[in-house]
Simulated assay, not measured.
Amino acid sequence: MPETVTIYRAPTTVADADALADWLRDRIDAEVRVRDRLLGRVDDGVAEEFAAARVTDPHDPETGNTMTGIVRYEERALSNPSRAGGIVYDGRDVQRSLNAHVPGEQSLDHLHIALLDRALGTWGDHDGRWHKRVAVLGQPTLVSVPGLYEAPAKPEAYYEAKSKHALLTGDAPPREVLEAEIEGDFLVADDPRTTDALKGYLLAAVDFLDTGSAFCDDERCRLHDAHRQPGVVRAQLRDPTFCEAHAARYD
Rank of each mutant, 00 (worst) to 15 (best):
G86V: 09
A84Y: 11
L111S: 06
H112D: 05
H110W: 05
I113E: 00
A100F: 15
S79P: 01
G104L: 12
N65G: 03
V42C: 02
A47M: 04
F50W: 13
A53R: 02
A77N: 07
T63E: 02
R76I: 10
D44T: 05
P61W: 09
P81E: 05
A84E: 04
H59W: 08
H59C: 05
V88K: 03
D57H: 08
Q95E: 07
A77H: 04
I70M: 13
V71N: 07
A51H: 05
E49A: 15
R72W: 13
R54H: 02
R83A: 05
G85E: 04
L98W: 12
D93W: 14
E105Q: 13
A53K: 00
D90W: 07
I70C: 03
V42R: 00
T66C: 01
Y89D: 01
S82I: 07
N65I: 12
N65P: 02
E105Y: 05
G45Q: 15
A114V: 12
I113M: 02
R96N: 13
M67R: 15
E62Q: 11
A53E: 00
D44A: 12
R83K: 14
D57L: 06
M67S: 13
I113H: 07
N99H: 15
V46W: 05
G91A: 14
S82L: 08
E75S: 06
T56F: 08
Y89F: 14
E48A: 11
G45I: 12
R92D: 06
E49P: 05
T66A: 00
N65L: 12
T56Y: 09
D90T: 08
E62V: 14
E62S: 09
N99Y: 15
L98F: 11
R76W: 13
S97Q: 07
D90F: 12
I87T: 11
R76G: 04
R92Q: 10
R83M: 13
E105H: 11
D60H: 03
H59A: 07
T63G: 02
L108W: 09
G64D: 02
G86M: 06
A84W: 09
T68F: 10
L108G: 08
R54G: 01
Y73V: 00
D60W: 10
A84G: 04
V102H: 07
G64P: 07
G91C: 04
D109H: 13
L98M: 10
S79A: 12
A100I: 10
E105A: 14
Q95H: 06
A51C: 04
I70G: 01
G45E: 15
I87F: 03
N80R: 11
T66W: 01
E74V: 02
V88M: 07
Q106C: 11
M67P: 00
L111Y: 06
Q106I: 10
D109R: 15
